[in-house]
């Protein structure tokens, strides 16, 4: 017999696991809609996380009693600033200097992970802890506030109300992004830039501005995913390399969601569920790697299905990954 509590717990764990993926993939979708293939997302998420941790660490250590509003706002702003900075580097290289997007993206990922481990390691040295980690428990507490009556509502409360605010923020961002992309003038122009920058340019759209704008906004949203993972999911515990390979999963999720942020909500929770699935079954240790590849297998299946159906709105932006040279029009 399957225990109801276990199912509720499974779903809520899937949501918690899926949230960094949702923020990462929403950010990447917005970026890709402008024709920029940002493979630097894992690095940007990492940078976002460590930037928020740096802010939170110094704030937590400078006061004896943290103020909840500041404990949320300071890491949040630091995270946005950090991921903006790295996104600007990527945009400058690929949009202004027209460097190869794949190479730049991979370099940004290596760079971001290095930045995270360097500053993370340095902060750990400051604390002088024998076990190398940072604990931002007061900051985490501020982020994890839930509605006071959530725990009194049984399974409904645990399933829908028992999360920190960033889980809801991620869904709201995805829905707003989806709306803007599909139903607004801004979204139309952004998509035009991603499909055919030359046409958009001819129509008077500032291609460079849109690419910068989308990449930076996308990077900042992805950075929030990194911050969420450290502060909310890990309860404010930073260890080097703790973030794992979530950034790549977020990029795979973009394809799974066929470039639609609203689809990405479902997709990220599904990926989250697949990630924790081995813990709810009694699989042998040898077959764990098979479970770990499930999200990628699902992505490949979606790719094949989409390619077979050949619907134009399911295809990636036509100029994805290509630099725009005005002179070549």
């Amino acid at each position: 017999m399957i225990d109801g509590n276990v199912i509720v717990s499974f779903i809520s764990r899937a949501v918690l696991q899926g949230t960094p993926l949702l923020l990462g993939s929403t950010g990447e979708i917005i970026t890709e809609k402008s024709g920029n293939l940002n493979l630097g997302i894992p690095g940007i998420m990492y940078t976002g996380a460590i930037s928020g941790v740096i802010g939170g660490f110094f704030y937590q250590n400078s006061v004896s009693r943290v103020n909840t509003a500041l404990a949320i706002i300071i890491p949040l702003l630091c995270c946005l600033a950090g991921s903006l900075l790295v996104s600007l580097i990527y945009s400058f290289l690929t949009v202004t200097l027209r460097a190869n997007q794949n190479v730049t993206g991979l370099a940004i990922t290596t760079f971001g992970v290095g930045i995270g481990n360097f500053f993370g390691g340095s902060l750990i040295k400051i604390t002088g802890s024998a076990v190398p980690y940072l604990s931002l428990s007061s900051i985490a507490k501020a982020f994890k506030h839930t509605l006071p009556f959530a725990s009194k509502l049984g399974w409904f409360g645990e399933l829908f109300l028992n999360y920190g605010f960033m889980v809801y923020l991620a869904v709201i961002i995805a829905l707003v992004a989806s709306y803007i992309l599909k139903h607004t003038h801004l979204g139309l122009q952004l998509r035009a830039v991603g499909e055919s920058p030359a046409t958009a340019d001819a129509a008077g759209i500032n291609v460079t501005a849109y690419k910068y704008f989308a990449t930076c906004i996308g990077g900042m949203i992805a950075g929030l995913g990194g911050l969420y993972y450290v502060i909310d999911y890990s309860n404010g515990i930073w260890s080097n390399d703790g973030f794992g390979d979530r950034g790549w999963l977020a990029i795979a999720l973009v394809i799974f969601a066929i470039w639609r942020p609203d689809m990405s909500i479902l997709g990220s929770y599904l990926f989250g569920a697949l990630y924790i699935l081995p813990n709810y079954t009694s699989v042998s240790l040898q077959s764990l790697p098979l479970f770990e590849m499930l999200p990628y297998v699902v992505t490949v299946v979606v790719l094949i299905t989409v390619s077979l159906r050949k619907k134009r709105e399911h295809l990636p932006p036509a100029s994805l990954g290509l630099s725009y040279f005005r002179e070549e029009r």
């Binding site: 103020n67 509003a69 007061s138 507490k141 709306y179 803007i180």
Partner: peptide
């Protein structure tokens, strides 16, 4: 109008969260 409304709603929720629980310490 809908876009502005949703952005506003998100902002209001965030601020409410921040202020509502202000200063609950360790």
């Amino acid at each position: 109008f809908k876009k502005v409304l949703s952005v506003l709603l998100a902002a209001v929720m965030l601020t409410a969260l921040c202020l509502g629980f202000a200063s609950c310490g360790d």
